[in-house]
Every structure is written in structure tokens, then in C-alpha cells.
């Protein structure tokens, strides 16, 4: 016997979006555009996540602030209720209803959830040989991004431009020593972009990028890599830095092998920048007490990556880099996709 299909109005569904980085923003915008009621959470008091701390974005060097403004402008909808400054720690999901908790406190109820909690940067202190946290002139790529954003004069010493800088690729990526076997994908292009910025800001500064493999996979990335080599004369040295130490002038002495010349190598630089990888966020939300994470990487495990971004529990979707290293356009696309999948789930259940 035929059953009459229920007529569904989008606004009868409440959907929660946790996180307000590129993936969370896009998910919220798309869910509202479909017509669903959106509860939007972020642990910070303002939206944007890590995008707030970036200067320019690869490969085309858009200003991160403009990209963020563009995103947040579109998120001004009466269907989106902002609950910023609220950290969601777990979801209890039963009978198609989800209860959101901040520790023990219930903060919301909804029909479907999109988790877009993003990623954390790898804690570079763990790779002790680079001396991050020990030497003042060893910094990470997000540190440099903040410096570039807030004033590159911080890179000068006594008003004098740096003579040389080095970037170390794959810090906290592809490294069995620390149990991180995956590639974080975006560090190569970050290193290329930041190296170019340094060469533009300080034309006399020599820049060395120490890499294992250059993985310039995205649209426009390879082209930027070639520009970095040819136009900006950035020295790409195939070999992983094995040790960084400080000399009497507080400059950093870097030891590596130039594997293409099969010779050990040494260079003294004013700043050593560690291109840190992406690791699962420490605020990853649990679902019915389970972490839902991939046992290998710790990122959210999608139930069927070919079919969509749903986690094992129906009605809960992952968007952006909480499911694994992702670029900003990829994260945004993943947020939009999760919103549509949530809508499909709610209308077909």
C-alpha cells in the first residue's frame, strides 16, 4: 500500500553547526539558505576560527580578512542563531533527536548536527631537535602568519632586515617518531607562500626551504612553486633538518643533508620557521560517549567517504578539517555539502 509522503517544510528542522571556521560558516550559510533553522556554536566569541589569524591566503594571496568578511557577511541571516563563546563537548543522540552539552550543561537540542570543529596545529615542541620554545628565533608557520599580519618589522633585529631565513617542511607530518604518518597537505604551499612573502618584504634575505617532497597538489599551487623557484630565487633543498641550534649571535644554525648532492649541509639563519602539520582538534566533540575518530589519524572517521560526510551515527555530519587536513576552499565546499546531506537525511528519514 502506498503511504502518502509527508510534506516537509525546511523550517521545521533545527540544525546545529559546531564551529565557525570556513567549513562551519559555509555549513551555516547553506543550511539557512535551504531554509532550516540553524543554531551556530563556536568556542570563541567571534566567528572565523583560525582564519582570523591568517595574513594572506595561498595561492592567490587574497587577504584573509577580506575572505572572512565575505563569509561572515553571508552568514547574517534571521535563520542563523549565534551562540558564540560556547564550547560543545558532547552530543547525545537518540531517536533522531540530538542534545548538545557543554560539559554537563545542556545547551541545545536539534534534529541534525554538523561538526566543523577544525584542527589544531601540531605542537612543535614535540620535535625537540628544532628547539621550538627554547630558541627565540625558531617559530612556527602560524606564528609567522601572525607576524606578517600584525607587522613584519618584528622580523627585524635592531631595525635590520633578516639576512637569511629557513623553512622546515613536514614538522609533525609524515613522521613515525611522533605517530603522525599522514601528510598534512597544506604545509608545502604555506611554506612556498610565506617564503615568497619574505622575499618580497626583504629582497636581500636568502630563503631556504628544506623539504622531503614538495606536494603542491591544489589548483595554482604548482605554478606558485615554480614562481618561488624561478622568480623569487628561493632555495628548495631536499633534506630534512636534523638539528637546529643557536650560535653566539643568537642566529640559528641548521644542519641537514642535501640529499640531491648526497652531502651534509649547514646554514646559519636569522629565523627558522617550522611548517607545522594539522592534528585533530583538542575540542573534538564526542557522540554518545564515542570519539568517532579514525584510529590511525584521530580525525573524524566518515562512515562512507564515497557517499558523503556522515559519521557513524545517522544525522551527524563532519565538515572541514575536523575530518582530515583540508584547504580553505575544500573546507568551505565540505561545509556546503554537509548542509545538503543533512537536509537530505532529514527529509528522507
Amino acid at each position: 500500500m502506498l503511504t502518502e509522503k509527508k510534506h516537509t517544510e525546511p523550517n521545521q528542522f533545527r540544525i546545529a553547526v559546531i564551529g565557525s571556521g570556513p567549513a562551519g560558516i559555509s555549513a551555516a550559510i547553506s543550511a539557512a539558505a535551504i531554509g532550516m533553522e540553524v543554531d551556530w556554536y563556536d568556542k570563541e566569541s567571534r566567528p572565523g576560527g583560525k582564519l582570523n589569524d591568517y595574513h594572506q591566503l595561498f595561492p592567490d594571496r587574497e587577504f584573509a580578512d577580506l575572505v572572512l568578511d565575505d563569509f561572515t557577511g553571508k552568514a547574517d541571516s534571521i535563520r542563523i542563531k549565534k551562540h558564540f563563546g560556547t564550547t560543545i563537548t558532547r552530543i547525545e543522540s537518540a531517536n533522531g533527536q540530538n542534545v548538545l552539552y557543554s560539559n554537563t550543561e545542556v545547551v541545545g537540542r536539534c534534529d541534525s548536527v554538523i561538526v566543523a570543529t577544525g584542527f589544531d596545529f601540531f605542537d612543535a615542541r614535540i620535535k625537540e631537535e628544532f628547539g621550538y620554545g627554547i630558541y627565540d628565533h625558531v617559530i612556527t608557520s602560524p606564528d609567522l602568519e601572525k607576524i606578517l599580519k600584525t607587522g613584519h618589522d618584528q622580523l627585524k633585529k635592531g631595525g635590520i632586515a633578516p639576512e637569511s631565513m629557513a623553512f622546515v617542511h613536514c614538522v609533525g607530518s609524515r613522521d613515525q617518531q611522533i605517530g603522525i604518518n599522514y601528510c598534512s597537505r597544506l604545509c608545502c604551499i604555506t611554506g612556498i607562500k610565506q617564503a615568497i612573502e619574505i622575499r618580497e618584504l626583504f629582497p636581500s634575505c636568502k630563503v631556504y626551504n628544506f623539504y622531503i617532497d614538495i606536494r603542491a597538489f591544489g589548483s595554482g599551487y604548482e605554478e606558485l612553486y615554480r614562481q618561488a623557484q624561478e622568480k623569487y630565487n628561493i632555495h628548495f633543498i631536499r633534506g630534512r633538518v636534523s638539528e637546529a641550534s643557536e650560535n653566539q649571535q643568537n642566529r640559528i644554525v641548521v644542519k641537514a643533508e642535501d640529499t640531491l648532492m648526497a652531502r651534509p649541509l649547514k646554514v646559519t639563519v636569522d629565523w627558522l620557521v617550522l611548517l607545522v602539520g594539522m592534528v585533530p582538534s583538542c575540542t573534538q566533540v564526542s557522540v554518545n560517549q564515542a570519539q568517532c575518530s579514525d584510529p590511525e589519524t584521530g580525525f573524524y572517521q566518515l562512515q562512507n567517504p564515497f557517499a558523503g560526510s556522515g559519521l557513524e551515527k545517522p544525522g551527524i555530519f563532519s565538515a572541514g578539517a575536523c575530518g582530515g587536513p583540508m584547504s580553505i576552499p575544500e573546507a568551505a565546499a565540505s561545509g556546503r555539502s554537509a548542509a545538503i546531506e543533512a537536509w537530505q537525511y532529514l527529509t528522507s528519514r
Partner: peptide
């Protein structure tokens, strides 16, 4: 192994100063 403390602990406790030179390790 990378920033050993065992001997610098002795040196500083007894009034000396450790030299952290590039090839220390």
C-alpha cells in the same frame, strides 16, 4: 637527549654558566 639537563644542573647549581654552542649535541 636534545636539551640535556643532567650536567647543566650541576654547573648552574654550583655557580657556573653553561655554554650552549651549536654543536653541543
Amino acid at each position: 637527549a636534545e636539551f640535556p639537563q643532567v650536567l647543566t644542573g650541576l654547573i648552574t647549581a654550583w655557580g657556573g654558566q653553561t655554554v650552549d654552542y651549536p654543536e653541543r649535541r
